[in-house]
Amino acid sequence: MLSISNEQDVGDRILAAAATCVRDYGIDRVTLAEIARRAKVSRPTIYRRWPDTQAILAALLTRRITEAAREVPLAGPGRTAIVDRIVAVAARLRHDDLLSAVLHSAPEFAMVYIAERLGTSQRLLIDVLADDLRAAQADGSVRAGDPRRLATMVLLVVQSTIQSAQIVEPILPPEELATELTHALNGYLAHG
């Protein structure tokens, strides 16, 4: 019987191999066979974890997004700390080489999670943010309203900012983009 840590290690190797494939080939040319070769596992080993390449790529993106959120801790209570964290996570995601590769090499894949359905990472981010907003409502720094609805709107604003940052960079370089995103989120979440 395999240990849990060995199983996790195999899963990590598979996701790491998938990430290198995306960077090297773009998302459309990633194959299960190449992922298996790079991870040094058999295809059946991959199939025991994920049904197909799309599921592996979705898991990979979920991991990258949730890791970025975990790497930026909430620096205190209240709206200001929440907004600072959101802006910092957005900056990490904006500069993430894997997410950039997906947005540029397979916009149709990204569009599924932008326009057609909420993905796992989006749902997780909404849940975490809703909890933070609920606490900030209790301390009076965030306006009244359903925290999940507020969190969902914040997700839409930030997601749009991440997607479009490159095209507005001549007008809003990264530092100014972060400043404007901070103003937008503070304005939206403040009592008005």
Rank of each mutant, 00 (worst) to 15 (best):
V128K: 10
V10E: 08
R143T: 11
R70M: 05
A88W: 06
T31M: 06
H183Y: 13
R149E: 14
V83I: 00
V30L: 03
V158Y: 02
A58N: 06
R79V: 05
M1G: 12
A184C: 13
S100H: 11
V158F: 03
M1V: 06
D146R: 14
I56A: 09
I56W: 05
H104Q: 11
L118H: 14
D28W: 07
A130Y: 05
L125G: 13
R92P: 00
A17K: 04
A151N: 01
V128A: 13
K40M: 11
I162K: 03
R37Y: 06
A17C: 08
R148C: 01
V128G: 10
A135Q: 02
A59I: 02
A190R: 14
Q122S: 15
V154F: 00
T179M: 03
L2I: 13
I171K: 01
V128R: 14
L32N: 01
A59G: 08
M1S: 09
S160W: 08
E116I: 05
Q54L: 11
A106F: 02
T179I: 03
D12Q: 14
A190H: 09
Y188V: 02
A115E: 15
R85G: 07
S141N: 04
I4M: 12
I27M: 08
S5F: 13
E67S: 05
A135R: 04
G11Q: 10
V10K: 15
R70K: 09
V158N: 02
D96R: 07
F109W: 15
P77K: 07
P174T: 13
I27A: 09
D139K: 01
A190I: 05
I46S: 06
M153T: 13
R117F: 10
A101D: 02
D9F: 06
R38T: 12
A106L: 02
S164R: 11
V128M: 07
I4D: 14
L124M: 06
T20G: 00
E176P: 00
A90G: 00
D96A: 04
T20L: 05
A190F: 03
L172P: 08
D84T: 01
D146Q: 12
G76I: 11
V128H: 10
R79S: 07
T179S: 08
S105C: 00
V87M: 01
V30R: 02
L98H: 01
P173I: 04
D139Y: 04
Q122G: 15
Q8A: 13
L118N: 12
L2T: 14
R64Q: 12
D139M: 02
R43Y: 04
A33E: 15
P174M: 09
R43K: 15
V158H: 01
R148T: 05
D28R: 12
A110K: 00
I162M: 09
M153F: 06
G11N: 07
Q8T: 13
G192W: 03
R23C: 00
I35W: 09
L2W: 08
